[in-house]
Simulated assay, not measured.
Amino acid sequence: MLNKLPVDERRAQLVECALDLAERGGISAVTVRAVAAHAGVSLGMVHYCFEGKDELLAAMAERLVLELSASARQVFAAVREAPEVSGVRGLRELLQSGVDGMWSTMEANPNRRLLTYEITTHALRFRAAGSPPTGAVADEQYAVMDAEVSAFLDECAERTETTWTEPVAVIAHRSLAALDGLVLRWLVDRNTEAIRAELDEVVLAITSKAVEKPPGRPVPRAS
């Protein structure tokens, strides 16, 4: 029965098995033999679906990118259900809700986030060694998150009748860099209280880049 799965379903199953192994033992735990054993299939089946470990790791990274994107959209969708607010103060409330939601998602599954960093580092090493296709995984991950956060910032500004004083892409890039650093620090010391305070500072920093639109006269947005 297992051997009759369509190739795309088989690939998805093997990627999930590989992610499970990596969450528990890191990338080094992901071998073709280990994935085959964990999935209950032959070595030949794994090789049929993936040329080797590198292609499997790339597929794992793509799955993580999709998960990050879906998680961000879910959090941001919940923020859309918040009561109507306006002005810079209202903008801060929406941003705080979004950041808190993203943090809660990360905190609920730290091993998955740690694995994301590990695969990103692996991809960057391949890029430095002259393997652009594998290295592109890191670029894709951050491009997706930049786009999701930029869209969220735009929507928050529109809802609160505020406008950004810098290009929203720049603000999103800077915000994600700050959040990345905080997540990594938390993975090291698990000091949630300290990180929560730092997250508040990040929200304040983002909010400082917005102003309220004058009544009846739209403020030119940064482009």
Rank of each mutant, 00 (worst) to 15 (best):
G44A: 01
I119R: 02
P215I: 05
V88Q: 04
R127S: 03
E55M: 06
T192A: 13
E93A: 08
L204V: 08
H47F: 11
G135W: 09
M106Y: 14
K53P: 07
R221K: 12
D200R: 10
S175I: 00
V32H: 05
W103E: 03
K53M: 00
Q141S: 03
Y142F: 13
Q96R: 15
P214K: 07
L187K: 03
K53H: 02
G87W: 04
H173A: 12
E62T: 02
L21C: 07
K53A: 04
T105S: 14
T120C: 01
A172P: 09
L56H: 09
V32Q: 14
G135V: 05
P214Q: 06
E9R: 14
S175E: 08
A129N: 08
A12E: 15
E166C: 03
T163F: 13
G98Q: 02
L43S: 01
S28L: 08
E23R: 15
R159E: 08
L153K: 04
T160E: 06
F76R: 13
S175W: 06
V188M: 03
A34V: 00
P215V: 00
M45K: 07
D200V: 04
A34L: 00
K53V: 03
S28K: 14
E166P: 01
E212S: 09
V203R: 00
V168Y: 11
N191Q: 01
A177S: 15
I171N: 12
S71N: 05
L153F: 15
V188I: 09
L153Y: 13
V15M: 11
S86T: 11
D8F: 07
L204K: 13
M102W: 09
A78M: 11
S86K: 09
L19T: 09
A72Q: 09
G216D: 05
R24Y: 07
F152Y: 15
R127E: 12
R10S: 13
D20L: 11
G98A: 14
R196C: 01
R89S: 10
N109M: 01
V211C: 06
E198Q: 11
V32G: 15
E212Y: 00
V202S: 08
E201W: 08
T163Q: 10
V88I: 06
G130N: 05
E161W: 08
R112W: 06
D189P: 00
V30W: 12
S69V: 09
I171V: 15
Q74S: 15
E67H: 03
S150K: 14
L179D: 04
V46T: 12
W164I: 02
